[in-house]
Each structure stands twice: as C-alpha cells, then as structure tokens.
Design a protein around this nucleic acid. Structure first.
Lengths: 220, 220
DNA sequence: ATTGCCAAAATGGTAGCCAATTTCTTCGAT
DNA sequence: ATCGAAGAAATTGGCTACCATTTTGGCAAT
C-alpha cells in the first residue's frame, strides 16, 4: 500500500530534482534574476528541503543560477558585457570544434544530423517551441561530439546552457518565426558543408549562426 | 574566552575548507585516484562532517575530484585520452585568448607580467616548487585576463586546474629542472611577443608551451 | 584456492534545530 | 504626510545527529 502510494507520488518525478529544475531553467520558465526561494521550490517540485538545497547548489556550480549569501539563489541574469563574452568564447570553441568535426565526422553521423534537421523541418510549424529547442540542442550536441573531443563538446554544451536561463522562447533569436526559419536553413547549410568536408566554411557558418540573434534584437 | 579559543582553533584555517583542500589538490599533494574518505578529511582538516561533504561536492563540481555513488570521492585520474582532449581544448582557448591579449593588453599589464617573470627567475633556484607554481599560475591568469574576456579567462583557468590534481611536482614538465627553465624561457619570449603585438607568434609560443611536457614524458 | 557469509566501515539521505540575516510592518517623530 | 527607526516575521544556512543502504574485508567451510 504505502509502496504504491510512494510510487504514485513519485511518478511525476522519474527524473531527479536537479534535472527537473534544470529543464525549467533551460526552457526559460523562470525570469532572469528571479529568486528561487527554497520553500517555493520545495512546494512546486514536491521535494524536501535538503534535496532542494543540494539541487540549487548543483545548478549554482553550473552557473545557471547564482547565490547571494543570506539572500538565496536566483536565476542568472547576464549583463550585456557578460553576454558578449559568452558569445565570444562560444565562437572560439564552436568554430574550432566545427573544424575538427569536418575532419573526423563519419558519414553515418552526418546522416543522423540530417535526420534531426528533417525532423525539425517537419515539426517546425506544428510542434511546441520546447520541442524544437530540444531538437536544436540534439543537433548541436551531436555535431560537436563529432569533433572527437568529448571534453570540448561538454564545454560547449555547458556554455550554451549558461545563456539560456531567463531567455524567453529558448533564448536565441527564436522569438520570431523568421529566426527559427533562419536557424533551420543554417543547419541545412551546415550539413552540406560537412559533406563537402569544408571545415573553414563550416566554421564561418557557425559564427554567423551564433551571432544571428544580433539581427533580431530590439535595440542593438 | 570561548571566542578567543574559537579564533585560535580556526587560526590555521583563515581560508575556507574548500580552498584548503583545493590548494592541496592543485599542489599535487594527493595521488591520482586516491580516495578522499570523509572521516579522513574530517580529521586532517579539523572540520566537521557537514562541511567536508559540502567541500567535496564543490570540488566535484569543478571536476577536481570525482564521485562514485556509495563509494565516495576520489582524486581525478585522467586517462590518456582525457588528457589529450584537455590539452587540445586548452590549446584552442589559450591560443585564442593569447591573440586577443596581444591586441588588447596595456603596457602596464605587460610590465606586471614581466615583474612576475623576473620574480620567477630570481626564485627559480631558491624557492619551493609550490612557490614557483603559484607564480606560474599568476602569470598565465594575468595574461589571459588581458584578453579582455574574463569568462574566457575563467574557463581557461578551470581547465588548467583540472589537469593538476595528482600530477606530481605541479603537473607539467616540472619534474625536471630543465622543464622549469624551459618554461621560464617561454615566458620571457611571450613578453617579447606581447610587446611586438605579435598575436600569431604568441599563439604559436603558447601552443609549444602547452605541449612542452610531451618532450619530458617517460614513455611517449 | 574459491566461495559464501557475516561483521565492520563508510556513504548518503533525512529530519530537525536554531542562530544570523534580511525583509516586512508597524509605530512614532518631525 | 513623510521619513525613519524599532520590532516582528520570514528566510537562509550552518550544524548535529541518526540510521538505512551499500561496500569492504575477514573468516570459515567446502
């Protein structure tokens, strides 16, 4: 009896507490700078105080939230400057990884990438934004994993995630349909460049892709 | 009375527990793969169980130690492959940062760097290895901070540190005096390249500097 | 020598307490 | 009425203790 109850209660949390909060953070379900009060998290995620503390510490270590002593934790809120630095650093890592990937990627993996891009194309009009965001993430993760350097890939992933919390609509230029379409076309082009083993071209494409959002900013 | 006692007891730990353990890790005072049992740490650092746990979690987040469920924490022990990946990634970031630094660094900061190098030269024969290691760290930190991108600098610092735990003698090619001397000469050369604003040359120097240790390996 | 079993050791999840700090509220003074 | 200060409420966070789970290590039996 008690076991069944416990299972039922936990049913919605087949994932760990951290990953549930993380998912909400990366999906932009919190506002930048929003306070994550322990009591609230405790209630909203149906967890106990200790787990909440551990989860928040974990997320803090990954810089998705920040910690202010005696105040608590709040969603990261990057300054203009920090955002610049983030994109500069991502450009460095991602262009380098792209060049490596162009050399090392296998034909099978290119096919996998293409499958993701196709799925993106199909779901672009119907699916929810979160779904598209997930596909986008899978595309880039797989691409950078193909660099053959998984530490590099992890580093890139971590940096990408740091830009997401509090960024509405997935965080890039994805506020507009045009942005999403542009993103998709970039991906198609990347596949072609991978097939052509054009590392430099790919790097350039990545750079443009990364800085795409600038075109869609309210006030540049 | 009690206050004075407390202060005295804490006197040796004016730094936090994490930074004390961290210092020992980075100085190579633990062996790679060595277990950090909670009880031992508790005793050796004169701390309580809770603080130890928090400290170990923190160090785990920075990948200086790893955590195996129900076994505990142990000093990171990089595989050959992981070490390759680490250096490849560092090369990418550090050469990029060096190029930026060559553009953006001020004359004052170059002078600061030179001061560190001079101090290194003076202390090379007399000072302890830990002292030299600290100076080396300050040199590289300041250099990469001069890229004007502090996120980039932090990232580089974190990656550098990940290579240190368990690496005897500071972790690089610093097992031999020749390695230390080589390192110093590299630094001198870097200063010259900075003065000449030769970003590409500097990047190349960094690359060689980073991969210097290969020459001094027991079995390549 | 190998296997199985039991005891000892260690981890790690949990509850709960209370001091320090911040935030909110209320009250009083100008 | 506004501002400021004192006090109350809320919140964080450091800490102790407990014990279930798991692993480890040793000992005995085959």
């Amino acid at each position: 009896m008690a076991n069944i109850m416990a299972t039922k209660i936990d049913s919605e949390s087949d994932q760990t507490l951290v990953s549930r909060i993380e998912a909400d953070l990366l999906a932009g379900h919190f506002r930048p700078g929003e306070w994550l009060k322990q009591a609230d998290v405790e209630a909203n995620y149906n967890a106990n105080r200790f787990d909440v503390r551990m989860a928040l510490l974990d997320l803090k270590a990954r810089q998705l939230i920040e910690h202010i002593p005696n105040r608590g934790f709040r969603v990261i809120n990057l300054s203009e400057r920090e955002r610049e630095e983030l994109f500069e650093t991502r450009s460095i890592l991602e262009t380098a990884a792209a060049k490596l990937a162009a050399e090392r990627i296998s034909d099978e993996t290119i096919a996998e990438l293409e499958a993701i891009v196709r799925q993106f194309e199909v779901q672009m009009e119907t699916a929810e934004l979160d779904e598209l965001r997930a596909l986008n993430g899978r595309f880039h993760d797989l691409l950078y994993q193909s660099s053959g350097n998984s530490l590099l890939a992890e580093e890139i992933k971590a940096l990408r995630q740091r830009g997401l919390p509090g960024a509405r609509g997935g965080g890039l230029a994805w506020r507009t349909m045009a942005g999403i379409l542009q993103s998709h076309e970039d991906h198609v082009r990347m596949i072609a460049l991978l097939r052509a083993r054009d590392g430099d071209g790919l790097a350039e494409a990545i750079c443009g892709h990364l800085n795409m959002w600038r075109k869609y900013l309210p006030k540049p």
